[in-house]
Design a protein around this nucleic acid. Structure first.
Length: 558
RNA sequence: GCCCCAGUAACUCAGUGGAUAGAGUGACUGCCUUCUAAGCAGUAGGUCGCAGGUUCGAAUCCUGCCUGGGGUACCA
């Protein structure tokens, strides 16, 4: 089993123990001790890790922070991984890692291999991450790409963090947008055959509708004209065609799913009926103006919401309640993460209210909003609208910019910030992109390892204590942070920390490369050569893992 | 009107209660006879939107305001 070294966790455990002993000595009762934070100081002179704990408990202890800090470190047990524990004004405790311990960790990284950095939780939690879930009425466009990248990387990272993750795509294959889509396809189909058919009001106009119509013609010939019996087959064919296209485009972006869940299936089974029944029996429903309403105002919502329209059709909200009830009650997920576009933001609060109505703990439903992407081509802002057919698809974006750069850019920004994506800039400066900086570090390492193998150097046994200059130690310490970053991302649901970490790691790797010659022709350097090969083998493990978690390639040469 | 998100270097963005606010790009200076210069080393660049407040300490929390985006459907 991996779990060798989450340094922060180690420090936190020891710190909590010391804190408890100090509290006992002073007859102080500790209740909430969830405020123990271990940070990495900005200034390296303050050590490798630090805590502000003494500053935060002055009131509880009725003492000044420096005195508390002294008491805490006087309780510190013997540890092999620290070389120095010191108190600094106004009340920080700073920790320096022991070089010998740091050097020896290289062996653990190599031993763990692709499992390095994985966390293992005591209880295996079932987590569903639902993302993209674009209506199968058109291709995936740029706005969706951001959620797709965030969702897929978060899934990878949470999986590494020890959760049992299911990646799901919710297919909105019911409702009137689908009807509009079918009508639009039929209109193009008739047009193709020289027959007349009215394109419906607000119908879809993109060229891809014509493509579907042509495929429809290839499949069904002219048999659909005036044949209303064939509408179901036609609908299924059109939907499947779109879903295949969506799936293929997402695959190009390195986005895949474990499960595709059909909205329609909620109506085929009893899920929808049971959901309405449960809301009914708990008195959350009322009839008004021939429609059925969810009385969310009981749950402190601003307004009530229609569940079943006066036409008798369920609203999107209705099936979404049934869908989320299915996630929690039928499939028993411990945690459900939905990744939505900013235009669905207003839906959060009422869906959570619906969960409470069904006696589901709504804190287990986490909704991440991926903010708007403004797509630019130079100075020109590209508006995306499916209905007018004027949009940049994911496919176009990936073809132009490349999946790796695309993923990196979407991933590096926090989901809650709106962002600009300038395609011309991304293309033009692609050689200077951070993504290449990271991949280049990996490629350089691979190149040295390949050369060492070619030269038949055996670096299995090496004296790691030789790795004692600043560049070597910085690099190893950076490698050892991967488990912390994985933990941080899974905990905060903020995958953007991963690319930032990767960039910092690459910076240490390049500095090492520049200052530390690995393969030397001087026979006197044999020992350090082996040690450094050992180091970069560990680095290769971490770069590979990191890029893999982000869904990016780790090229051997560039 | 109300709700959500954002405003940090010339540009794109990190940092969300701690120590001297960071990175990439762009600008400027150096560095290739040795494992890839898609690199390294350095310089310049800041009223953290504005104004109050909270405390030992605020870019970070609270209040108000300004600016930009999104939402506020018997659309999804």
């Amino acid at each position: 089993m991996p779990v060798k070294s989450n340094i922060k966790e180690k420090l936190r455990d020891i710190l909590l123990g010391c804190l408890q002993r100090v509290a006992d000595n002073n007859n102080i009762h500790l209740d909430g001790i969830d405020f123990v934070e271990i940070d990495r100081p900005a200034n390296f002179e303050h050590g490798d890790y630090a805590t502000n704990l003494p500053l935060r408990i002055t009131k509880l202890f009725g003492n000044n922070p420096m005195a508390i800090a002294d008491q805490i470190i006087s309780e510190w047990p013997d540890t092999d991984f620290l070389s120095e524990i010191s108190v600094a004004a106004p009340g920080f405790i700073n920790f320096k890692l022991e070089d010998k311990w740091v050097q020896a960790e290289i062996g653990h990284i190599i031993e763990d291999g692709t499992n390095f950095g994985d966390n293992h939780l005591d209880n295996l939690e079932k987590v569903m991450i639902e993302f993209v879930s674009v209506n199968p009425t058109g291709p995936v466009h740029v706005g969706h790409a951001r959620g797709a990248v965030i969702g897929s990387s978060l899934a990878n990272i949470m999986s590494a963090a020890g959760y049992a993750v299911t990646r799901e795509y919710y297919i909105n294959d019911a409702g009137n947008q689908m009807q509009l889509f079918f009508e639009s396809v039929l209109a193009r189909y008739h047009e193709l055959l020289g027959s007349s058919y009215q394109l419906p009001e607000g119908g879809y106009q993109g060229d891809y509708i014509k493509d579907v119509a042509e495929l429809l013609h290839a499949e069904f010939g002219e048999s659909l004209i005036g044949n209303s019996d064939a509408i179901n087959e036609m609908a299924k064919f059109s939907t499947d065609t779109m879903l295949n296209a969506i799936s293929e485009d997402l695959f190009e972006l390195q986005v895949e799913f474990d499960n595709w869940f059909s909205e329609k299936s909620l109506f085929g089974s009893d899920e929808y009926r049971d959901t309405i029944g449960e809301l009914e029996s708990k008195n959350y429903l009322k009839e008004m103006d021939n429609a059925l309403w969810f009385v969310s105002t009981i749950l402190e919502e601003e307004k009530d919401n229609v569940i079943v329209k006066s036409t008798g059709e369920p609203t999107y909200f209705a099936s979404d309640i049934a869908y989320h009830r299915n996630k929690f009650k039928t499939r028993e997920f411990d945690q459900v993460i939905d990744i939505w576009g900013a235009d669905h933001q207003g839906h959060i609060s009422r869906l959570k209210a619906a969960m409470r109505a069904l006696d589901i703990d709504d804190s287990k439903l986490k909704i991440l909003i991926s903010q708007m992407v403004t797509l630019k081509k130079g100075e020109e802002v590209v508006r995306a609208s499916k209905r007018t057919g004027d949009f940049i698809t994911v496919k176009e974006l990936v073809d132009e910019v490349g999946a790796d750069a695309c993923r990196y850019f979407f991933l590096a920004r926090s989901a809650s910030s709106q962002m600009e994506f300038d395609m011309e800039l991304a293309k033009k400066t692609s050689n200077e992109n951070p993504v290449f900086y990271i991949q280049y570090a990996h490629a350089r390492i691979q190149n040295i390892l390949a050369l060492a193998t070619e030269n038949q150097i055996d670096w299995e046994q090496a004296d790691l204590a030789l790795l004692n200059n600043i560049h070597e130690l910085n690099l190893i310490k950076a490698l050892l942070r991967l488990p912390e970053v994985i933990h941080q991302v899974a905990d905060s649901l903020e995958p953007h920390h991963m690319p930032h970490y990767a960039l910092e790691l690459a910076s240490y790797a390049h500095a090492f490369y520049e200052h530390c010659r690995v393969i030397s022709s001087d026979p006197n350097d044999e020992a350090i050569t082996k040690s450094r090969l050992r180091l970069i083998q560990a680095a290769q493990v971490v770069f590979g893992k990191c890029l893999n978690l982000m869904g990016m390639n780790a090229p051997d040469r560039m």
